[in-house]
């Protein structure tokens, strides 16, 4: 017998992989925008656990944006206020400024005039940020879906993590939605960023092949267009 370890042990990467997987736990994916995870991978024990700790903290102490649009905002206020008291779930203090908020609840119908404003509010929130769509209007336009001026769902403009259906949802339903979001955040999940029809068609973002270059040269910045094309929306 030599003092060398057995072939099956030092030739295999199995034990290392198994340990690493065990440390990572379940539900973690790389969509969480963690620069640390990107830099270090998942090897260092402390960082993995620190990330999980941060997720738990994020989920347990949410700063909501004080954001009222339409009917649902009345039920949203009831959710914050006495009796339902969202604060019991660590998500009760609405912030008036988007720069201090983690979560935006979109409570109501979005119309073409308000869409760009809502995107602007969303853009001002610091990362990581989460969106709860409250009510049928934020899912599809709800009862106003056929209106000439109505955006058919909040997802046309910003990515939505949790949809709470109802017209309007009861406060209990919104509490459930918030609790579900907390669960997801604690597991390190976020919604993938969707392509937004509101985004300007900026030629600068396309790969610079010859054709694009030629087209881009022809375009005057003043002629960039923004489309409200709700007819093609689902």
């Amino acid at each position: 017998m030599s003092n060398e370890p057995r072939q099956s042990i030092y030739d295999s990467t199995g034990p290392v992989t198994d340990t690493r997987d065990a440390r990572m736990g379940e539900g973690v994916d790389d969509r969480f925008n963690s620069k640390l995870r990107e830099a270090f991978g998942s090897q260092p024990f402390i960082l993995t656990k620190f990330d999980q700790f941060m997720n738990w903290v994020r989920g347990s102490s949410m700063f909501m944006l004080q954001f009222g649009i339409a009917c649902c905002s009345i039920e949203m206020i009831h959710t914050y206020a006495i009796k339902h008291d969202l604060d019991r779930f660590g998500a009760g203090v609405p912030r008036a400024s988007p720069r201090q908020a983690d979560v935006i609840i979109v409570p109501g119908t979005i119309v073409s005039k308000f869409g760009p404003r809502m995107k602007r509010v969303y853009d001002q929130m610091p990362e990581p940020k989460f969106v709860i769509g409250m009510g049928s209007c934020t899912i599809s336009g709800g009862p106003f879906q056929e209106g000439y001026n109505v955006v058919k769902g909040a997802e046309e403009i910003i990515p939505v993590d949790i949809h709470v259906p109802g017209c309007p949802p009861r406060p209990e339903a919104l509490v459930y939605g918030v609790a579900k979001l907390q669960e997801r955040v604690a597991n390190g999940e976020t919604a993938p960023v969707v392509v937004k029809p509101y985004e300007l068609e900026q030629f600068g973002d396309l790969p610079r092949d010859e054709l694009v270059q030629k087209l881009a040269d022809q375009i005057d910045e003043d002629d960039l267009v923004m489309r409200y094309n709700w007819a093609d929306s689902p």
Partner: peptide, 13 residues
């Protein structure tokens, strides 16, 4: 015609 898209110049925004 409600199905006609509203196209708005960027400068107008």
């Amino acid at each position: 015609d409600q199905d006609k898209p509203q196209v708005v110049k960027f400068a107008q925004h």
